[in-house]
Design a protein around this nucleic acid. Structure first.
Lengths: 258, 258
DNA sequence: ATGTAAATGTTAAAGAATGTTTGTTTCATA
DNA sequence: TATGAAACAAACATTCTTTAACATTTACAT
């Protein structure tokens, strides 16, 4: 077999990557019937031009770009309860609605349930929510602007607040870091508290999600009261006494079992 | 089955975790037909990159969460040229400045060079840029709000445009999908073109980056002219005749060699 | 044809990855 | 908590890969 000109061979090597994520030098040398040295030089040339990366014994594709916004969060804590709460909140969402979706692990569980949503618009300050919904066909994701908190995948600050003022949504769904027995809603971050407060203003109706461990705990920043909220969803571990008090504030309290 | 290079194997192991939360060493060793010791070393390598956590008999995903905004970049030519152009653009950036950094592969190369920046503020519609700079100590990242274009990690639309109006920056740095021989700047997306235009308005000075293959090609949307730009950086493959014309428009033309 | 440049092949020494052995640690459970 | 089975890590042996220098071939313009 006649040897191909080098450019053609390199193109063929390049094609390989659409079938496999990686190639081995030994294999390519056999296949094109050239020395391994030649394949090495081909790969070096391709590496400079395109998005492959040399490795020991071959090369891998780096074309798929993975943006990593990583953060440390205990997503596992009470996950069953959070899932059940999110499933209940899912019921509140109707096709065609515009949602304001807060940052947090519970709302992230809800986001996962929205991937099959129809004609939804989700407005969020959370990169995690945006990531979860980026490929959902029936959901348009609008990310609020703002400063990325270091080590935390969400946006806060004056820009975020300013962005929020542009929107009028049907429903705001939020998490909370603590719910006082008097119905005060707490966040552990002041900037987040401000954003949450504005989110409720921008939506016709609002809904707060918090598993029972949050009830009776407080945190740094208060962002309002359950009295300003339409629906509060928690799990059945919540003390009945507290729930009665919340109901008196005018909020509709829903409990779910995990 | 042919053994893949070790990096490829590690990537495949890593992908396992999206299907299952944990994997066992014995299973992996069987599957890839290598010794368990090799799998242990793979896992140790992955652990060092903080993707996973070793356990007895296997590994699990670490609690650090990774948000993947993945997209398949169009096959890229001329990476070396883009790097060289980005390196030249890096020279324009001084400590303390506020930058508007556009979306695109060339500007992304520049972002990588800014990680050791001092006291910089980077305002960007690109999730890729934000991801690249999220851990840069001397750089504050402000993400513009907006709609996430499907399959493309950047923000556009009215929200983005509105956000841009909030800022006054020292320098705007942009890519381009085409540069007409008359100096017209082209983008392949109309929404991006609008954002780019506004970015230049919001900055005192502006700079456009484009490798020589872009010169003489046009695209869907025009977003202005090099006459409105302070600096144009390209590589030495650019036709001298075109560059002379650009200079006459009043833009400072810089060429670099890859 | 012939010289020149580019592409390819060859070799040997250095370097990486992998396998194997062995003794130690960890885990489940009796 | 004592014990056997499984998992682990260290050290070394083995195999495969890389690199760089140099030799050879090929392509092509003159």
């Amino acid at each position: 077999m006649q040897h191909l000109p080098s450019t053609a061979r390199q193109n063929q090597i390049r094609e390989r990557f659409s079938a496999q994520p990686g190639v081995s030098i030994a294999e390519l040398a056999r296949e094109f019937d050239v020395s391994e040295m030649t394949i090495r030089r081909d790969l070096a040339a391709l590496e400079a031009k395109t998005h492959i990366q040399r490795t020991h014994g071959g090369a891998v594709l780096t074309e798929r770009m993975i943006l990593e916004f990583d953060y440390r969060e205990r997503r596992e804590q009470n996950r069953a309860a959070k899932r059940a709460i999110a499933a209940e909140a899912r019921q509140l969402v109707q096709p065609g609605q515009r949602l304001l979706l807060d940052t947090g692990t519970t709302t992230l569980e809800l986001a996962a349930l929205l991937v099959d949503g129809e004609d939804l618009t989700v407005i969020t300050p959370s990169l995690a929510v945006a990531s979860e919904l980026q490929h959902a066909a029936g959901v348009e994701v609008i990310l609020l602007g703002g400063v990325i908190r270091r080590g935390s995948p969400d946006l806060t600050g004056p820009v975020t607040e300013h962005c929020l003022e542009m929107f009028a949504a049907d429903l705001a769904i939020q998490g909370a870091d603590g719910i006082g027995l008097d119905g005060t809603i707490y966040n552990s971050d002041l900037r987040l508290a401000r954003v949450d407060k504005l989110m409720r203003h921008a939506a016709k109706r609002s809904c707060v999600l918090a598993d029972h461990t949050k009830i009776g705990t407080t945190a740094l920043a208060r962002n309002g009261s359950l009295a300003d909220v339409d629906t509060f969803i928690t799990d059945c571990g919540a003390p009945a006494e507290a729930l009665r008090r919340f109901t008196k504030l005018g909020v509709k309290v829903v409990t779910v079992s995990p």
